[in-house]
Nucleic acid binder design. Structure first.
Lengths: 235, 235
DNA sequence: CCTGGTTAATCGGTATACTGTTTATTCGAA
DNA sequence: TTCGAATAAACAGTATACCGATTAACCAGG
């Protein structure tokens, strides 16, 4: 996933991509090419090309005032999950079939970290461990086109995932589903993995829709509140 | 699909994408940013950004001497078809369910053009009509993420498709499969569409693998032949 | 205070110029 | 004639500079 390699565009792209995965960029942030260029000690063009690539891949949107992370509508979430439902259960099943001991160990380690982070209520660690878990089983997917497509569709949800984990009860249900999938992997049972992943997909969709709906309501409220505020008192 | 809009990068990107779809770019062509810039009356940067976008989407590869269309390995073909098998039958079924009369008419018109082109042995027209047919049913796919993903995976095959259509017998079988799908659409039977699309996927994969295998063999032969030639006589 | 219009800042898009690396070519020596 | 080294050309990557559009800040008049 990370390829700093020798070229500035790729380096900046990977860096931004990682920050997106780790939810280190919030929807209110504005990414400006000159800032990113300065932060990386390069000129505007590499930063700009990295940003444009993220836009064309659907992670960012260009506004008239800097680039911002793309906010998912409820329809987006449903649509993205429709694709994920078609791909991930089957891919996970093939991963269960073709998994090496190394991958199995990585999966277990990631699951441990997930549960530890859950216990300590450490949201950033939870996000990171969650990404590790999925990357671990994706490694066992032999088809690189399949793996890349799935990885991409998962990454659209990082911003929403943050909200999911913030709520304790939802997080626990989410992690429980993950754990069930993990146990199916341990049993080396592709069909069980497939079924549990299917269930997980539906549960995750529902959770994300709930979270997003709440986010949208809150955004709406704070917007009207701010309007009222600016109308009354000015600094 | 085509959005010339107001910005040069998008305009050049759409133009190149269209040329790729129509197989107007061969694997031996070298796309150089300065040439493309000159052809569009712009500077290098927009052309370059369009090219880089096509690279990041997997349609082109950057070589040390210009950009070239990405050649698919046999593993690529199998892998890409594994994804297509998961997505297209189900998406086509939903298209059959949600299809409007307008889409139905468009589908019929495209099918007519396909058969006419087949009769006249007009390969470029066949390619174009084939693209029209798939775009027509994709219009009825309500989920834009699904449609975009499918569209993208289909476009990887344009270079190989040319080879498929060049062989009369293969082309006829391909078109027959398309026609059967079309009749299922006409019957408004989502399940029939799904099943026939599934069959079509397997047949198409086999055809593409055959064509590509032949291409690779021929390339190998001509390469050794050229080597021998340059060794003997120099101009 | 509120409103409307004018100015200033911000930022994306495009152009041009420069650099380093890779490949092709040419020319000379074996 | 062949091989290899020097040289030239091609091309991607990067930097800098300019322009135009959009938006925010500011100010004057109600």
């Amino acid at each position: 996933m990370a390829k700093p390699s020798d070229n500035l565009v790729d380096a900046i792209y990977s860096d931004l991509r990682l920050k997106l995965q780790r939810s280190m960029i919030t929807p209110s942030d504005r990414l400006v090419d000159t800032d990113i260029a300065a932060a990386n000690g390069s000129s505007r063009m590499p930063a700009r090309e990295a940003l444009l690539r993220l836009v064309s891949e659907g992670y960012l949107v260009g506004t008239t005032r800097g680039f911002a992370i793309r906010e998912l509508s409820l329809e987006d979430i449903s649509g993205l999950f429709e694709v994920r439902r078609q791909l991930e259960p089957r891919a996970a099943a093939s991963a269960a079939r073709d998994m090496t001991p190394a991958v199995e160990a990585e999966l277990a380690a990631a699951m441990d970290r997930v549960e530890q982070a859950l216990g300590e209520n450490d949201i950033p660690a939870l996000l990171a461990a969650n990404v590790d878990f999925r990357n671990a089983w994706l490694k066992a997917v032999r088809n690189p086109h399949m793996a890349a497509t799935i990885s991409r569709f998962m990454d659209y949800f990082q911003s929403v995932r943050l909200g999911t984990f913030a709520d304790g009860a939802t997080a626990e249900r989410y992690i429980d589903g993950l754990s069930r999938i993990h146990r199916a992997f341990l049993a080396h049972d592709p069909l069980m993995v497939q079924d549990r992943m299917t269930l997980f997909m539906f549960a995750a969709e529902e959770a994300y829709l709930d979270v997003r709906q709440r986010q949208l309501r809150e955004a709406e409220m704070s917007r009207t509140a701010r309007r009222r505020y600016t109308k009354r008192g000015t600094a």
